[in-house]
Design a protein around this nucleic acid. Structure first.
Lengths: 166, 166
DNA sequence: TATTGTTATACTCTATAACTATA
DNA sequence: TATAGTTATAGAGTATAACAATA
């Protein structure tokens, strides 16, 4: 198998999209309906964005762990597992793949002999930037095609969405 | 193993969130920067929404396939695989799980002996509604806590977001 | 004794390759 | 010969349980 594929599909979760009824714009929608449509739109866009990934050098799980390592500096296996909400043994396997690939490196912790510090390597940092660039390219292109008003609406919405996740 | 867990973690993809710089509100942001922040907010919210799932009766992949089947009426294995962007053998395994659980049923196609029609069962339809209800509950609660203006912004943004994936 | 990381084992989801049945 | 579904086999990601090393 071509190693890294886990990315392509990724559970829809937006499956019911096609069944969302189209209502006349004139009708007032309830808060529940509005949140439903927002949820569907968000899940669908997220799925689309997830598909925009670097050629397939890294799986989704691997890339995610790599991003944390690159962003949060050297961190322990336990901390990384916590960030990804995964058990330490699971994260250990992912880390093994990343270490084998040369994207990150294990270091002994200076203060605690039990701990291991994970640090991104130069190639690892480079591929994070490249993958992020590709993912953003897709959205930025469509973003630029909107009217100024529409962009303004999305910018305002971004702040509100961010607050929703607290 | 407790069967269905594939849900819990689900690759972050928003790993760099913590590194998003907070800029003063006065500064004008570029289109690229705006799309970046939108992307991060969308991915983060999507991840949060994905975590809100029914107790764990069905895995993410199973639930997604079930939703399509419930929404799109009886459909073939090939069509379902296409909708989920998965190969037919992969979907076949997921379908086997759903059939074993009694959530969907296989039927012979009346017009083409090679085809198989997949139809949701009554329990299958019930669990789709229940799971969807639980997922929406989380968002609807927060949505209701917003001001009328904020909700209006999100409603307007929803339509724009939907067009982005179009 | 408690904590951190690791290894052993098992199950799900995914893939490709090959097979069967029908068109 | 082409198409729809299935089976066989394998890799990645996840889990729990058990172990080693260090605090």
């Amino acid at each position: 198998m071509p190693e890294t594929l886990a990315s392509a599909p990724i559970a829809a979760d937006t499956a019911a999209v096609g069944s969302t009824p189209r209502r006349p714009a004139t009708r007032r929608t309830s808060t529940a309906e509005q949140s439903t449509e927002l949820r569907l739109a968000v899940m669908r866009l997220a799925r689309r964005l997830r598909q925009e990934r670097a050629e397939a050098e890294l799986s989704a799980a691997q890339f995610s762990a790599l991003m944390w390592t690159a962003a949060e500096g050297p961190l322990t296996l336990g901390r990384l597992a916590e960030l990804e909400r995964v058990t330490p043994p699971s994260m250990n396997r992912t880390v093994n793949c990343l270490v084998d690939g040369g994207w990150i490196a294990r270091e002994a912790s200076p203060d605690d002999g039990r701990k291991v510090l994970l640090r991104v390597t130069e190639p690892g940092d480079a591929i994070v930037r490249e993958t992020r660039r590709r993912r953003e390219a897709w959205l930025a292109k469509r973003f630029a095609a909107l009217t100024a008003d529409e962009r303004e609406t999305l910018v305002a919405a971004t702040a509100i969405l961010a607050r929703l996740t607290g």
